[in-house]
């Protein structure tokens, strides 16, 4: 069995975001890039299959040389081999990314492709379902439980609608979310392996982009923060403000 995971580098959640002079991008200097948190669930699920079923595991990430760090984090967790699809600039058009990855993935002959539910930088939740269409494979998104048997998977999908139990044959694609597992921390041995890991770099051409970022701004400032008071005495005034000032109740 071969399990491929897609990982993406994103600014650490704690990072202060500064918009650059072009007002289309952020200033990268001083930003710590980490593995997208949802991709940690994807990697963990692949590693579980590596351990329980002897699956071969591969992580793929399009990006510049900077993304090597995230691929090394995947090796540190336990992934066997890593591939970077070389692209110089970030691509914000999901369909372009999907097409770019589809080319590489098509040749990989995997049984299972696991992605995160969403990348927390642009937060679109689109890559998994798009790859399902482009590769003509079943894609089950928002998975919180996965059982892999010979030639098929059974997955629990948890959405705003409730929980669905879904069956599909392999090869298939799933997107992982919190609840699926508890991602492990890299072991010392893993960290050593990560330092020595050989990153295979593949060239690919970026196709015709259909969505462009044409501007970037800070969110509108929130109004002033009012401390209404202390303890229960402040409650009537709070309720009055919510009614009369905020018109929220």
């Amino acid at each position: 069995m071969k399990v491929v995971v897609c990982v993406r580098e994103v600014p650490d959640t704690e990072t202060y975001i500064k918009i650059d002079a072009s007002q289309k991008n952020i200033v990268d200097a001083n930003v710590t890039f980490v593995m997208n948190p949802y991709d940690e669930y994807a990697v963990e699920e692949a590693l579980k299959l590596q351990e329980s079923a002897g699956a071969e595991t591969v992580a793929v990430c399009p990006g510049s040389a900077r993304a090597d760090d995230v691929l090394r984090s995947a090796v540190a967790m336990g992934v066997q081999s890593v591939i970077r699809v070389n692209v110089a600039e970030p691509i914000w058009d999901g369909l372009t990314t999907a097409k770019l990855l589809a080319g590489t993935l098509k040749e990989m002959d995997f049984d299972l492709l696991i992605l995160g539910k969403e990348a927390i930088d642009d937060g679109t939740q689109q890559l998994g379902p798009m790859l399902g269409e482009l590769l003509d494979l079943p894609c089950i998104s928002l998975v919180t439980k996965l059982d892999v048997a010979d030639g098929s998977v059974t997955a629990e999908r948890e959405s705003g609608e409730g929980v669905e139990v879904i069956e599909a044959s392999t090869p298939c694609i799933i997107t992982a979310q919190k609840g699926l597992n508890e991602p492990r921390y890299p072991s010392l041995r893993g960290k050593m392996a990560a330092k020595k890991a050989i990153i295979e770099v593949k060239e690919a051409s970026v196709g015709n982009v259909q969505l462009e970022v044409t501007g970037m701004e800070y969110p509108p400032a929130r109004g002033k923060a009012t401390v209404v008071g202390e303890g229960v005495e402040a409650v009537p005034e709070l309720v009055r403000l919510l009614r009369e000032e905020a018109k929220a109740i």
Binding site: T13, I17, I26, G123, E212, V213, P219
Partner: peptide, 12 residues
């Protein structure tokens, strides 16, 4: 929104 709402992008 991008970056968890820390920036708002205009996309075309």
């Amino acid at each position: 929104p991008m970056y968890a709402g820390k920036a708002i992008a205009t996309v075309a």
